[in-house]
């Protein structure tokens, strides 16, 4: 099958569009970077999820795959409603002062590798490992995503769990998914888009 060579005007149009998007993202990021906070930048052009502060890359999580649904192309600033639940070990005061409590701390391996994150304005971020790495977690995330959509649509979901708007599914390695769950905090900003113009 033959493809027609892209015309110069089409190329210019694409470049304009990508430059406009990258410029909008930079404007948003400058606002975020001007404040003392940690934020996330999901660059769909690479694709990589960056943990950043003051415009500096602190850490990067490679995205294996991403897919949007339920809305147009996703770009802009969102804020996390709440971080994933963490099962925290509880210390019990020692009955015997000579035997100090020896409690296992939480670590990265205690974080979930499959979870949903709700953002404002309406965005559902589905994080899951790839099918070949952890099939059970992959299937569970599909089921949970489907259930949340169904519950929202039928009105069964609580107001806090109502999902309106687009969904973004991120496939991360188990390690990267746990790192993200560890890092996110309530209200954390997430900037999504393509940062590099064509």
């Amino acid at each position: 099958m033959l493809h027609a060579a892209p015309s110069a005007s089409n190329e210019k149009g694409d470049e304009r569009e990508s430059l406009q998007e990258a410029t909008r993202l930079l404007e948003e990021e400058i606002k975020l970077a001007s404040r003392p906070q940690i934020y996330l930048l999901l660059d769909l052009s690479e694709p990589i999820l960056y943990i950043k502060g003051r415009g500096i890359e602190l850490h990067r999580l490679p995205v294996l795959q991403w897919k949007t649904s339920g809305g147009g192309f996703l770009s802009g600033l969102f804020r996390l409603r709440g971080r994933p639940e963490v099962d925290r070990p509880k210390a019990e005061p020692s009955k015997d002062p000579s035997l100090p409590t020896d409690l296992e701390p939480i670590n990265l391996q205690d974080m979930p590798a499959e979870y949903l994150l709700l953002f404002e304005p309406g965005l559902l971020l589905v994080v899951a490992p790839p099918l070949h790495e952890q099939p059970w977690l992959w299937a569970r995330s599909r089921l949970r995503e489907w259930w949340l959509r169904f519950a929202s649509w039928t009105g069964v979901a609580s107001p806090a769990d109502q999902v309106a708007g687009p969904r973004l599914r991120l496939t991360l390695t188990g390690e990267a998914a746990r790192s993200l769950a560890w890092t996110v905090t309530d209200g954390m900003p997430l900037l999504i888009g393509r940062t590099v113009p064509l």
Partner: peptide, 8 residues
């Protein structure tokens, strides 16, 4: 918190 914005 700042005003959130998303563009589609």
């Amino acid at each position: 918190p700042t005003a959130t914005e998303n563009r589609q």
